[in-house]
Design a protein around this nucleic acid. Structure first.
Length: 947
RNA sequence: GCUCGAGUGGCGGAAUUGGUAGACGCGCUGGAUUCAAAAUCCAGUGUUUUAGGACGUGCGGGUUCGAUUCCCGCCUCGAGUACCA
């Protein structure tokens, strides 16, 4: 082997790494630990394109760098293998999702292996494996068996709550629970029936079953979490979503709102990501106020951020879905109200969002009573008030809130002004900083802050309200009406959910004939024959007839038919990787958890900001509370890699004809752009007409109007890389043609890691040429045989080396991998021109480059006479002495303009520099006859002469 | 609308405690080599020019001896979010 045969080299080393288990992480090590993790992929049928490995390459470079630095690095990989696409495919083809998933995983693995990642595959996880989802189910049960104690601010076992209830009832309990909780004493608790007790406990559990308003997607036949809806349609598929009340499992994530917020200060994440979590949690400070309803014993509970404006209230608005609406509506208004409710219910989420300008609402006929003035306030309903936020009711202060103002104007409701010197003729006055309250009884002449304090005190004293912090974050709906997900370890006895004993886990996903909902509209698991729970024998049994199930004698009960959402398995997988032996008795051993702690570096896309990244933090905090894990945050440092975009090619077709026109000739014609597969197009945007014709039947007989030189050109546009846009570049092809090392370096070279950037295969030759030069640096002569000497390196070569060490080390630590590729190129060019062949320089250089281009580095390392892998060779240390020069060039400016540089010995004092510069300046021609007056020295930077 | 981020050659992008803007790569031009091509190597490549310079980092101001960098006001693009009381 003489030339740079990358295919041979890469195949050889990938094989050796696999055989020798080079990258296996040890759980017992003297070395300090470092945990580098990628967001694990969903194995889709389309396979990987060049955009997918970007983050993996970056994390691999960092993992390899840390190994060189002497760390025991955990760098695992796995698959998030439950999910919608496999199920949709199953519905269409009847193929079991497990089968397609398996095929896709094999394909993914082949592609990943070609790129030369240093993953420890012995720790691989798959969320759809029973050995894995056993623990997802187990964690679910831990949540089911827990409640949130606000006093201790942590989750506790539900048995402890039962103990509290039997000794003192729930009067003193300070827990996060459902709103409409009834109070009871210890003796009352003991009197309650078992079902009643269960009912109450369910309102406290951290995962609970409740009738909730959910986002229902009819096309997908399932509910969606808020983060799975984008612009009012489903994230997957883009189908409409409507609001619907359904009995659903929910996760009481709202209990953790404040801690999820506080924790953000302790982690090193990108600010935009922290901002979007902060936003999503949406903390706002204000007060809750209860208004009595005239001639009813009902109370309207509102949340407001402006309790100081309470004397400006001129009406109230309830969400159409609000529970009180039906109770307080008067007979005269009944029909109007019902019509309105019906009309709003029909509107989909999307319509409602698209149409925010139309003001609609109906008067209920009822009046609330102002708690201080005693005034009667009309109660309206309107869809600008959302049932899901706050209490679903607002006190409207039209002079201070634009939406209230618009509503009042529209319905001719009075707009009393309570702001001194504020003009509210045209719009509401919402500035709270520069305002003084007036017309407000005991709040007169106070500013926002003073008035707020005073009114909260007054509300509390009167018992009609209190200061309150409200969060936008809502409990997360946890059930999906799907097949391909984790089954709930839950069965129903007397209509109440019961936990399947943890010893019986995993509760295996049953087989079904079809992956569609049942005729009765039940989820696909309703089709399973074996899906009932035999309580006595603790096992799954065949379904028995309904009457037998309802009779509690035989001890056989129906199992839950929903499955868990995609984020269940991904909320804790990083702990499973820690368990080297993949033991079945624990999700991860205590020793492993204590040793690996949390993920030091996590790399993945920003699209998970309010989904996976929030849910994981929630589960980890919960697991910490229950003593299951030592850490409170899963990911210490996080980096969002930007997407690699594709460059789509468009051939222009004349409207209504089967004739295509080359790009420069489209001007005067009406054409439509048609995606052409990018593989038919060369660097100069010329289309291979024959290939294009053969691509599709409909283009077979198409005519082509070419340029004058006979070529046919397409136009280009940057789009997301996707199969449907025919702009996918396959990493396998790049590896085949240029090698994995080239692919790795080029992906880094494309631009900053965190930025979106288009893929351009044309540019890859630069990086590939560099690797060829690198190879040449270690080989010389006619047949390019290996040539490295033990002679001392030249001063220049050492300078080049150390300059590169410094830069590359800084770059890796700052994650600016793109600029270090440049440094390597400069270094190789310099060393080649210096004809450097000294081991003293070439050995450290191989280590430097090995995180980026591991295969060629291993090959060179072996040729340098090493028998061990380069992967743990110590990273070279930068020696400043090689960069220091005898003299230093001082840039000199005159009146701010750069004039010349002056070379002076090192280590001069400020005074010495000043007199040397002055002496030089007096004899110099630069000053245009003017005499230098003053020398200004900015240490380390510049010497300035003022004339 | 609100929040955040970004605007630098033909292109991707370098450069920040304020100090010679355009590193490195692509592309392009010229040359060497070749029967020719590919590959490789060498030189050039912001604009303009009367060849000394002048102008240049989205636009307009400001601070400074000096601003891509800091401050104020705009414009454009991107991302997130959206009746949040």
């Amino acid at each position: 082997m003489s030339k740079y045969h990358f295919n041979d080299i890469e195949g050889k080393w990938q094989e050796i790494w696999r055989e020798k288990k080079t990258f296996k992480a040890e759980n017992n090590s003297e070395k300090p630990k470092y945990y580098v993790l990628d967001m694990f992929p969903y194995p889709s049928g389309a396979g990987l394109h060049v955009g997918h490995p970007l983050g993996y390459i970056a994390s691999d470079i960092y993992a390899r760098y840390k190994r060189h630095q002497g760390f025991n690095v955990l760098h695992p990989q796995g698959y998030d293998s439950f999910g919608l696409p496999a199920e949709q495919y199953a519905i269409q083809t009847g193929q079991h999702p497990a089968t397609t998933t398996e095929v896709n995983i094999t394909r993914y693995r082949e592609q990943l292996d070609k790129i030369g990642f240093s993953f420890d595959w012995s720790r691989e996880v798959r969320t759809s494996n029973p050995e894995y989802y056993k623990w997802t189910q187990w964690i679910f049960l831990q949540l089911f068996e827990s409640w949130y104690d606000k006093n201790l601010d942590k989750a506790r076992a539900i048995e402890e709550l039962q103990v509290v209830f039997s000794s003192e009832g729930n009067l003193k309990t300070n827990a996060v629970c459902d709103d409409e909780i009834e109070h009871f004493t210890a003796s009352e608790w003991l009197e309650f029936s078992e079902v009643k007790k269960q009912e109450i406990l369910l309102k406290y559990r951290l995962t609970y079953l409740a009738e909730t308003e959910v986002n229902w997607c009819p096309q997908l036949g399932t509910v969606l979490a808020n983060d799975e809806i984008v612009n009012g349609v489903s994230e997957r598929g883009g189908y409409p979503v409507i609001r619907k009340k359904m009995k659903q499992w929910s996760m009481r994530i709202s209990a953790y709102a404040q801690r999820l917020l506080d924790g953000l200060d302790k982690i090193d994440w990108p600010q935009p990501l922290k901002d979007s979590q902060t936003n999503w949690i949406g903390r706002s400070k204000g007060a809750s106020v209860r208004f009595n309803v005239k001639e009813h014993d009902a109370k309207i509970d509102v949340f407001t951020t402006r309790p100081d404006t309470i004397f400006g209230v001129s009406f109230m608005v309830l969400a159409p879905e609000h529970d009180l609406v039906s109770k307080i509506t008067t007979l005269e208004q009944k029909e109007a109200v019902e019509n309105y409710i019906e009309a709003t219910a029909k509107r989909s989420e999307r319509e409602r969002m698209a149409d925010v300008k139309t003001i609609t609402g109906v008067f209920t006929g009822a009046y609330a009573v102002h708690p201080f003035s005693g005034e009667e306030i009309p109660v309206w309903i309107g869809d600008y008030v959302l049932a899901g936020y706050g209490t679903g009711a607002v006190m409207s202060v039209p002079c201070g809130d634009q939406r209230d103002y618009d509503f009042a104007k529209h319905f001719n409701i009075p707009i009393p002004n309570i702001f001194k010197d504020a003009d509210i003729a045209k719009e509401a006055y919402s500035d709270k900083e520069n305002t003084v309250i007036t017309n407000s009884d005991f709040l007169n002449d106070l500013n926002y802050k003073q008035a707020t304090e005073k009114i909260i005190a007054a509300l509390e004293e009167k018992g009609v309200g209190e200061g309150k912090i409200n969060y936008r974050l809502r409990d997360a709906v946890f059930s999906r009406q799907r097949y391909w997900g984790e089954p709930f370890p839950i069965y129903y006895k007397d209509g109440m959910p019961q936990a399947v004993p943890t010893e019986c886990l995993p509760l295996h996903l049953p087989e079904v004939e079809k992956y569609l909902p049942t005729e009765e509209g039940e989820p696909p698991l309703g089709r399973a024959d074996n899906w009932s729970w035999d309580e006595k024998n603790q096992k799954i049994v065949a379904n028995v007839s309904l009457s037998a199930v309802e009779g509690d004698d035989n001890g056989i009960y129906p199992l839950e038919l929903n499955t868990m959402p995609g984020w269940a398995g991904s909320s804790w997988y990083f702990f499973r990787y820690m368990e080297a032996a993949k033991r079945d008795e624990v999700f991860a051993s205590k020793e492993a958890l204590d040793y690996w702690q949390n993920v030091d570096l996590y790399i993945g896309g920003s699209e998970h900001a309010t989904g996976h990244l929030l849910y994981s933090r929630f589960w980890v905090k919960f697991m910490h509370d229950r003593g299951l894990v030592p850490v409170e945050e899963p990911f210490k440092k996080l980096i969002n890699q930007g997407m690699i975009l594709g460059e789509s090619a468009f051939a222009h077709r004349i409207e209504g004809e089967n004739t295509f026109v080359s790009t420069s000739l489209v001007k005067n014609k009406t054409t439509q752009p048609i995606h052409a597969d990018v593989s038919f197009v060369n660097i100069s945007n010329e289309l291979d007409i024959e290939a294009f014709k053969n691509w599709r039947e409909e283009y077979k007989n198409a005519a082509f109007i070419t340029e004058e030189d006979g070529t046919f050109k397409v136009s280009r546009e940057v789009e997301k890389m996707s199969k449907s846009k025919y702009n996918v570049v396959n990493p396998d092809d790049i590896c085949e043609q240029y090698g994995a090392d080239t692919l790795r370096m080029y992906e880094m070279f494309l631009g900053p890691l965190e930025q979106a950037k288009p893929w351009n295969t044309a540019g890859i030759t630069g990086v590939h040429g560099f690797l060829k030069k690198l190879w040449k640096l270690y080989h010389s002569g006619e047949n390019e045989s290996f040539y490295v000497t033990d002679e001392a390196a030249s001063k220049d070569s050492l300078k080049t080396l150390h300059k590169t060490i410094k830069k590359v080390q800084e770059d890796i630590e700052n994650f600016s991998f793109n600029t270090s590729v440049s440094s390597f190129m400069i270094a190789v060019n310099e060393l080649l021109s210096q004809k450097c062949n000294s081991r003293e320089v070439l050995e450290p250089l191989a280590i430097l480059i090995s995180p980026y281009a591991p295969h060629i580095a291993e090959e060179l390392w072996e040729k340098l006479g090493h028998t061990e892998s380069i992967s743990t060779a110590p990273f070279p240390t930068f020696e400043k002495m090689y960069l220091v020069e005898a003299n230093k060039k001082y840039p000199i400016s005159f009146n701010g303009k750069m004039r010349f540089t002056l070379e002076l010995p090192l280590d001069l004092t400020k005074d010495q520099i000043e007199s040397a510069v002055m002496a030089h300046a007096k004899t110099a021609q630069y000053l245009e006859g003017r005499r230098p007056k003053k020398v200004i020295i900015v240490p380390g930077k510049i010497v300035n002469i003022v004339g």
